[in-house]
Amino acid sequence: MSDLSDFPITKRWPAQHPDRIQLYSFPTPNGVKVAILLEELGLPYEAHRVTLSDADVKSPEFLSLNPNNKIPAIIDPNGPTGAPLGLFESGAILIYLADKAGRLIGSDAAKRAEVIQWLMFQMGGVGPMFGQLGFFTKFAGSAVEDPLPRERYINEAKRLLAVLDGALEGRDWIAGEYSIADIALAPWLRGLEFYGAQEIVGWSDFPNCVAYVERFLARPAVQIGLNTPPR
């Protein structure tokens, strides 16, 4: 049996199955990425519900695994050297797990580079910009009277959607084959509905993106991962 006692997070969220990958997450666009990938890969894991409250993500136990106090994070009891490995940042976790399984990260070196390219597009563009759009349309930022921040993120979201819509022309998946890039991107596109932002960005003007999200949501592993761990 794997010994995870060196990880303080397991004191607050005990591992019932320490031989499985431990997932600490909440079903946000970033949080569901890892659960979906674990389901797609069929890797055994145990999910722990870590809410977005300071009591959870700023607790000493969680900070011991992720000093950036953001979900998701994982512990792999069987890391590359045989010792347990803790990891945070959703993009890094996706690459690590896909490499571990040898799947969903490109069928050759050129395709791998393309997959990582689109993953970085999500991490550096879609995630931050859509997150700010959500803040200024649904959350506290919606009370800000100055229209400039809201307009900035609306326009940037539209620009990013146009990039994706063009790239998806004639393709089912962003890198040509289903990959971690899709698992990173599609939950954020789906999040526009949660933010109440589909109308203001003209979601219907991006038919390739609309069909892309529908294809993504039709996958059984996605349906499980979207609610793991349950709210």
Rank of each mutant, 00 (worst) to 15 (best):
M1F: 02
M1A: 07
M1P: 04
S2M: 14
D3G: 06
L4A: 08
F7W: 10
T10V: 14
T10Q: 09
R12V: 06
W13D: 06
P14R: 09
P14N: 06
A15Y: 10
A15W: 06
Q16R: 10
P18E: 14
I21W: 04
Q22A: 11
F26N: 01
P29H: 01
V32E: 01
V32C: 00
V34M: 00
A35M: 00
I36R: 00
E39C: 00
E40G: 01
P44T: 00
P44M: 00
S53K: 09
D54Y: 02
A55E: 09
D56C: 01
V57M: 03
V57N: 01
S59W: 02
S59K: 03
P60S: 02
P60R: 03
L63R: 14
L63F: 07
S64A: 12
S64T: 05
I74V: 03
D76C: 06
P77A: 03
T81Y: 08
P84R: 11
G86I: 10
L87P: 12
F88E: 10
A92I: 12
A92G: 14
I93L: 12
Y96K: 06
L97Q: 08
A98W: 04
D99E: 14
G102L: 03
I105W: 04
S107L: 06
D108K: 05
D108F: 05
A110G: 11
K111N: 10
E114A: 12
I116M: 07
I116E: 06
L119F: 08
L119C: 12
L119W: 08
L119G: 13
G125I: 15
V126M: 15
G127Q: 14
G131C: 12
G131L: 09
L133Y: 11
L133I: 13
F135E: 13
K138A: 12
A143N: 12
V144E: 09
E145D: 13
P147R: 01
L148G: 11
R152K: 11
R152Y: 03
Y153L: 04
N155E: 14
N155R: 13
N155K: 14
N155G: 13
E156G: 13
R159M: 12
A162Y: 02
A162C: 13
L164K: 15
A167N: 11
L168T: 07
G170R: 11
A175F: 05
A175C: 07
A175I: 07
E177M: 06
E177H: 04
S179L: 04
S179H: 03
S179V: 05
D182P: 10
I183F: 02
I183T: 05
P187E: 01
P187G: 02
W188P: 05
W188I: 01
W188K: 02
L189G: 04
G191H: 14
G191I: 02
F194Q: 09
Y195K: 04
Y195F: 15
Q198R: 15
V201K: 13
G202E: 04
S204V: 10
D205A: 15
F206I: 09
P207V: 09
P207A: 14
A211Y: 12
Y212V: 08
Y212S: 15
V213D: 06
E214L: 15
R215Q: 06
L217K: 15
L217F: 03
R219G: 14
P220K: 11
A221L: 08
G225T: 07
P230E: 11
P230K: 12
